[in-house]
């Protein structure tokens, strides 16, 4: 089966360990939510998947088209080229390049041949980016920048999209649109999504499965459909209620 498999991952910063024995899987076509309150290690896990944080133990593998590729130890740009599109915390756009230049920059390696097609798709999905394509990315509003960050990840022709808290700093109505658009990427474009989110209600509405991260460990994994009971368990786990 195609997908991303993280097993027994340990990672942190210098002497401080943040993630303890974390295992998650994301199968092709799934929308997996990674839930957790501030500082519980969501971004650290995603950064480890992307190669920005080096794991001290465990494995991260991409299974695709019958191949198994280890991601741990590879440079971030290689991981992107292998098919993990990344929408990071803080968006990390290039402020002094235009919207279109930011998108063009990401059409690299495998994605080069899909440039025109990907750009059309991005402009179709995010109308505002088409209208503002000559505007400097740094002068866009927070919501527009978030759209651009997602579009940039789409430009890399990702097999799996890794999205870190897309709702941070946005007005509630903008958040709803954003989450709906991400959900459409899964339902209409059959994209595979791993999304970190601390807003529980946002995430459970769209996710097909969820993991709850607390103090750097997976304390709950909801493997089958998010029914009312599962939601109650997740919420308690997030709040630290036993």
């Amino acid at each position: 089966m195609n997908g991303l498999v993280v097993e027994g991952l340990r990672a942190g910063y210098g002497a401080v360990n943040v993630l303890h024995d974390v295992s998650i899987t994301v199968g092709e076509g799934e929308f997996v939510a990674l839930l957790g309150m501030n500082g519980n290690g969501k971004s650290t896990l995603l950064n480890a998947i992307m190669g920005f944080v080096k794991p001290s133990a465990g494995s991260i593998r991409l299974f695709w088209d019958g191949q198994s590729v280890p991601l741990a130890g590879q440079a971030p740009h290689r991981i992107v080229d292998l098919g993990i599109g990344y929408v990071p915390e803080g968006r990390r756009l290039v402020p002094n390049l235009t919207v279109e230049e930011n998108l063009k920059l990401a059409a690299r390696g495998r994605a080069k041949n899909d440039f025109a097609e990907n750009l059309d798709f991005c402009f179709e999905t995010f109308q505002i980016l088409k209208e503002r394509r000559r505007q400097l990315a740094g002068t866009m509003s927070g919501g527009q920048q978030q759209q651009l960050a997602i579009a940039r990840a789409l430009m890399t022709s990702p097999r799996i999209m890794v999205i870190d808290e897309p709702s941070v700093g946005l007005a509630p109505i903008v958040v709803d649109q954003m989450i709906a658009t991400i959900k459409e990427l899964q339902t209409k474009r059959r994209m595979t999504i791993l999304m970190a989110e601390q807003s529980f209600f946002q995430a459970v509405e769209v996710a097909s499965r969820a993991y709850v991260l607390a103090h750097g460990s997976i304390v709950h994994a909801i493997e089958h459909g998010l029914d009312a009971e599962a939601m109650e368990t997740i919420r308690n786990a997030m709040m630290g209620v036993e």
Partner: peptide, 10 residues
């Protein structure tokens, strides 16, 4: 401006 932005762009 941002090396990480470049990495993310491949």
């Amino acid at each position: 401006h941002d090396e990480r932005a470049l990495s993310i762009s491949g």
